[in-house]
């Protein structure tokens, strides 16, 4: 009984999030508040969120609390800074006459449990300076590194994964 209540609660939560997100994206795309646009957007967003709410529940995302939102904002800030650094880094390596690279493929370990968290970590690693994710299996990530700083698992984990895990752990943990 209590499980059924829990599941319907999950469904409502997924429905609310999906409806909010799809509706805001629609409003941004049409960029007008004319009644026909709003009504048609409302109908489509409603249909999508009714059909997709159970998928959202399947993701197992944690409820949004103030603390999680704060960490999420800090995380987005860090990610943007890392993206800018990544671009300057690649620009330097491309323009340097001798192309200063020391590439290799290393393995790192993550302590994150949920699939969504691992997905975000893998994508963040891809966006940051000199690394991109080739494969994820369980708690290990296979990573191509353009300038290898450490070949062992512990060292590579410290250099690549830690700066994001610091923020992702409070959000998903």
């Amino acid at each position: 009984m209590s499980q059924g209540v829990d599941r319907s609660h999950e469904w409502v939560r997924g429905f609310a999030w999906l409806f909010g997100i799809t509706f805001v994206v629609w409003l941004a795309l049409v960029s007008s508040l004319a009644p026909p646009e709003v009504i048609s957007g409302c109908i489509v967003a409603l249909a999508i969120s009714i059909l997709g709410a159970h998928l959202y529940a399947g993701l197992g995302l944690p409820a949004l609390t103030l603390k999680r939102a704060a960490f999420l904002l800090a995380y987005i800030g860090v990610l943007f800074w890392e993206i800018i650094k990544a671009n300057l880094d690649v620009a330097y390596r491309v323009l340097h006459p001798r192309i200063p690279i020391r590439p290799g493929i290393v393995v790192i370990r993550t302590s994150l449990k949920s699939n969504v968290a691992k997905l975000i970590l893998a994508n963040s690693i891809t966006l940051t300076p000199g690394t991109f994710t080739l494969d994820v299996v369980d708690d290990q990530l296979l990573i191509h590194w353009i300038y290898v700083g450490a070949t062992d698992v512990e060292g590579a984990t410290r250099l690549i994964g830690k700066r994001f895990e610091k923020y992702l752990k409070p959000i998903f943990g």
Partner: peptide, 9 residues
């Protein structure tokens, strides 16, 4: 390239 851990993985 200096290292390739794919085999292990």
């Amino acid at each position: 390239s200096v290292v390739d851990k794919t085999e292990e993985f």
